[in-house]
Design a protein around this nucleic acid. Sequence first.
DNA 1: GACAATACTTTGTATTATAAAGTTTCATCG
DNA 2: CGATGAAACTTTATAATACAAAGTATTGTC
Lengths: 136, 136
Amino acid sequence: MSHRASTDKAQPAITDAGAGRFSYDGLDRVMHEKARLGILASLAANSDGLLFKDLKQLCALTDGNLSRHLTVLDEAGLVEIWKGASGPRPQTMCRLTANGRRRFTQYISVLERVVTDAQPSTQPDTRSQPLPRPTE
Amino acid sequence: MSHRASTDKAQPAITDAGAGRFSYDGLDRVMHEKARLGILASLAANSDGLLFKDLKQLCALTDGNLSRHLTVLDEAGLVEIWKGASGPRPQTMCRLTANGRRRFTQYISVLERVVTDAQPSTQPDTRSQPLPRPTE
DNA sequence: GACAATACTTTGTATTATAAAGTTTCATCG
DNA sequence: CGATGAAACTTTATAATACAAAGTATTGTC
């Protein structure tokens, strides 16, 4: 007979413990984006807010991209945007909202988990079978 | 006169030091993606490789998504994929390549910088002007 | 008052993540 | 032994969106 016997059915694989272990649900799409991550980190480091001009430099973004990303962050309620009507030129000032700071902190804590997970030092092996080791 | 005097031209903003400070260039598009980050972390934790089935559970992905993401990671040279011809059913085994492990480690080190940056404790203020504090 | 420059915003396109449907092989049941 | 179901993927299609290029508006300068 060429096919295996039916005795080893329903191999449970990975025991279901650890299911979703690496799904990282906390990585919110809005924050988990290179450019916006930079913006948020900049604003977290400057709690009094930053000018459009400054953000542009710090994050090395073009005007268009920065504008777009700020809109996204604003709509998500993460930052607040102040249009300067007083100055000689239009000046846009951005700050983290209280909620934004909270959510960003949460996001960062998930990132910390990712960093920890990536150190394979003392991780218990999660696999199911020994597997035929592929010949390198 | 309503407009400002011309004496304060060319305000240098942010001194140019710290330009690009938050651009996070090291955040490679291929790796910086929720789902693929999970896959890579799983594989980093299981250096002998993982089965498609196991990855699917660990990362809580649908068949289609996992398949697609693995293809992307494969094409980027980050993982290697072994098709099991020996077993009773098709079995796909995935492992980090040597290069993949190296690049992932680099990526993680950037993530660590992000995490550090997000702790605003002892950060020097990067702004240019005191700014008219917006009334809350 | 023409010309360049600053400080943005809007629009268009090309990429891509995800879901839905499709394929293939094996096991089981009447 | 043909039908049915299920496991293990792959392919296709669509909806979202990141980025670049073009546009707008105000200001300063010659």
